[in-house]
Design a binder for these strands. Structure first.
Length: 433
RNA sequence: GGCGGGUUGCCCGAGCGGCCAAUGGGAGCGGACUGUAAAUCCGCCGGCUUUGCCUUCGAAGGUUCGAAUCCUUCACCCGCCA
């Protein structure tokens, strides 16, 4: 089956096509004229994360091919909650959700073009959902839905077999379908994209448009990103990788990509990179030939940190990593470089009043202060296991509570703490006043 | 509504009056080996002013020299009967 549309060919080459309604019809429409498409993001947290980013970027690819994106932020759907397999969500209050809507709207705006003939538009489904009365909704929208079919949805079936489901969450699919119908009416939107877990919700919308308007619109999903080791993509030991710099520092974001498993490289490059297929294939080759160089990881880290946080932050994250992981003597780094690197990694502060007899508090305390250990007990254990370095020199196993002479400070105020192979943080002695 | 079973550390899951800060597995952390990778092996894995002390075994009371373990009440979950 030959796909006849540039954007679909590209998605195909990147393994980004999971399910679709009528791919040939979609290809015809995409080739004939610019198509208006949408992908929604619910405010279930103050920030979007990497899973959302893959969806944002898919839509961005459509825009680059001349199509018009509607970035939907779910001010209404976020108040209800898409049913999860595991159990009922806790409802967030309206103020929280509207605060998150604002923040997520700002994030989304960074990834689309808002000028030109196919300028993106940000929309909020609360705008058309809030004014509708319950009676109108049940008559005009609800009448088009068969409960029998809704029960077939995977998440709903799982919930019925297990912990049960509230009517609130059960109705979620109606709201999302209503969005598609409304966007079709308002903007002529004829394509909704999303992760393959959204297939049920998306096709419900397709059905609603057909019933209400007699029009055939499209659905397209991308595969769920799976990792070679079976763990969930987009999380680390310390939690979700957020797009908000306040929740996940650009340094941590950059490190996330740098530490990607070799086996996941093809998927990650194809999903997240805007490089050409040729460039991606050559990185994949480099990764196979000389895995230790991690050329693909570096390329991903640089490209995505630049995209999400900007070129300056990407450079800073890069040079911080180079400074901290480099083999050179830390004392030979210029102070501003050291300061910048540690600021990226995280800094714990020591007040001059805490200096006793020319000594800083012991490492066990400093590790907690810098956020590298959860408690002093944990810090002592890590030291005893030989897992801690100060200024890249290993701390002796029994020295967890030994005071640290001020002479160890670099430039009179910095200490570089490392836990394990790759966790760094700084300690800064604030100037005496 | 009646009867029975359950609620243990991040998750799963033993313990059923003192030897319990609590077996085991998973996750996580550190070390060795590496490439800031994977796999493997070893160690750690409630807190602290750490030969000891403090707080944990759904919640609150009680019995006892002593309770995760016994009793009472409450909350939630799960079976069987109606």
């Amino acid at each position: 089956m030959a796909i006849m549309s540039a954007i679909l060919d590209e998605l195909q080459a990147r393994n980004l096509l999971a399910q679709s309604t009528d791919l040939d019809a979609l290809a015809r429409d995409l080739s004939a004229a610019p198509v208006t498409l949408y992908c929604g993001f619910d405010p279930t947290a103050p920030s979007l994360h990497l899973g959302n980013l893959s969806q944002i970027l898919t839509v961005r690819r459509f825009q680059q091919h001349g199509h018009r994106p509607l970035a939907l932020v779910g001010g209404a759907t976020g108040l209800i909650g898409d049913p999860k397999m595991t159990g009922e969500r806790t409802l967030n209050d309206a103020d929280t959700v509207s605060e998150w809507v604002l923040r997520i709207r700002e994030q989304v705006e960074r990834f689309y073009e808002f000028d030109g003939p196919n300028a993106a538009i940000v929309v909020n489904n609360l705008d058309w959902t809030a004014p509708v009365t319950a009676i109108e909704f049940l008559r005009d929208i609800g009448k088009h839905f068969s409960v029998n079919r809704m029960l077939d949805r995977e998440a709903v079936a799982a919930r019925l077999a297990g912990p049960g489901i509230s009517f609130t969450e059960f109705s979620y699919a109606l709201l999302q379908s209503f969005d598609y119908l409304e966007l079709y009416r308002r903007y002529g939107c004829t394509l909704q994209t999303g992760g393959s877990d959204q297939w049920g919700n998306i096709t419900a919308g397709v059905d609603l448009v057909r019933r209400a308007e007699g029009q055939h619109v499209h659905a397209l999903t991308t595969p769920l990103i799976t990792k070679a080791d079976g763990t969930k993509f987009g999380k680390t030991e310390s939690g979700t990788i957020w797009l908000d710099a306040a929740l996940t520092s650009p340094y941590a974001f950059h490190q996330f990509w740098l530490n990607a498993d070799d086996r996941d490289i093809p998927t990650l490059l194809r999903t997240f990179s805007f490089g050409t297929i040729e460039e991606i294939e050559s990185l994949e080759q480099a990764s196979r030939d000389e895995p230790a160089k991690r050329a693909a990881q570096r390329a991903l880290a640089d490209e995505l940190t630049t995209l999400v946080h900007g070129a300056d932050e990407a450079r800073a994250a890069n040079s911080a990593a180079a400074a901290l992981f480099g083999r050179g003597d830390l004392a030979e780094l210029p102070e501003h470089a050291l300061a910048a690197a540690l600021t990226e990694a995280g800094v714990g502060v020591v007040e001059p009043s805490e200096v006793v007899d020319g000594n800083l508090p012991p490492v066990s305390e400093l590790l907690v202060r810098a956020g590298l250990c959860a408690s002093k007990g944990a810090a002592r254990r890590t030291v005893a296991e030989g897992g801690v370095s100060i200024n890249n020199e290993r701390v002796a196993a029994e020295s967890a509570d030994a005071p640290i002479p001020l002479q160890q400070l670099l430039f009179g105020q910095w200490l570089v703490l490392r836990r394990g192979r790759r966790s760094f943080a700084g300690i800064r002695l604030t100037p005496a006043e």
